[in-house]
């Protein structure tokens, strides 16, 4: 479904993503992990069109999408969330998601249909479906849900979930992970899940890629990652002997 090859992103003299390659099968949940500054979010921004690759290719269903505008990539069927929630504060909760549903479909659906899709997405993540709710005063966890609902409303085939667990407590994390699992199982949406912390993610993903300093240092089953010496070194530091 998605084929990333030799992807590079350079900010001045800094190489944020260096020759990263991976494939993604339809229906899979792929975990993308690594310490702070390892290039996870940059990789996301490159796939979602928020940044332009310096080199390499990104193919989505066989079509090169590297360097396309973000809205065009959304129309092709890639939805994303942001690490730090970015709600549209002047719009109500329902409007936030409706505008995503409408424009995610390229404006080719009616407003009523957009609102219907928005309501379905809100239900999916467990937010109230009410037109009078404002985003002001929504807590961090609810805002994370809004990010997910907004991405889902665009009817993506591939969902890029950026740190959906960041800043949540244990119980909230469990529920968030369940929602992501549900999205894959019930809606059949393929997911790339970026996370800084490994715990919950490892139980749900089919495969995991570990980045460090912009390079891929591991790809494989979550269970193998936990015992891989390079991965443990990155996360825990070098063992002293």
């Amino acid at each position: 479904m998605l084929a990333v090859e030799g992807l590079c992103k350079r900010f001045g003299g800094f190489l944020a993503v260096n020759e990263v390659s991976f494939d993604l099968r339809a229906g899979e949940i792929l975990g993308l992990i690594g310490p702070n500054g390892s290039g996870k979010s940059t990789t996301f921004n490159l796939i979602a069109g928020n940044l332009r690759p310096s080199a390499g290719s990104i193919r989505f269903d066989g079509r090169e999408i590297g360097g396309l505008a973000a809205h065009a990539i959304c129309h092709l069927g890639i939805g994303r969330t942001f690490q730090i929630p970015r709600p549209f504060r002047k719009l109500s909760l329902l409007e936030n998601v409706t505008v995503a549903a409408y424009h995610g479909a390229g404006g080719k659906i009616s407003r009523a249909e957009a609102q219907h899709r928005a309501e379905t997405a809100l239900e999916m993540v467990g937010l109230p479906v009410s037109s009078s709710v404002q985003t002001n005063g929504m807590g961090a966890a609810a805002l994370k849900k809004l990010e997910l609902a907004r991405a889902l409303a665009t009817k993506p085939r591939l969902l890029l979930a950026d740190e959906s667990l960041g800043g949540l407590d244990r119980e909230e994390m469990e529920h968030a992970a369940e929602v992501l699992d549900d999205i894959r199982n019930r809606l059949g949406i393929t997911i790339i899940w970026v996370e800084h912390i490994m715990g919950v993610l490892m139980r749900i993903v089919d495969r995991v890629i570990v980045l460090d300093h912009g390079e891929k240092i591991f790809e494989g089953k979550p269970a193998q990652a936990a015992v891989d010496p390079r991965v443990t070194e990155v996360y825990l530091g070098k063992a002293r002997t």
Binding site: A70, C74, F88, V99, Y102, T154
Partner: peptide
């Protein structure tokens, strides 16, 4: 629905583009 798109753009162009709005 144009107003909602413009409100979204006025707040956050990147987030607006990510939900498919042609900014």
């Amino acid at each position: 629905i144009g107003r909602e798109a413009l409100e979204a753009i006025s707040e956050d162009e990147e987030a607006a583009a990510s939900v498919g709005i042609d900014v």
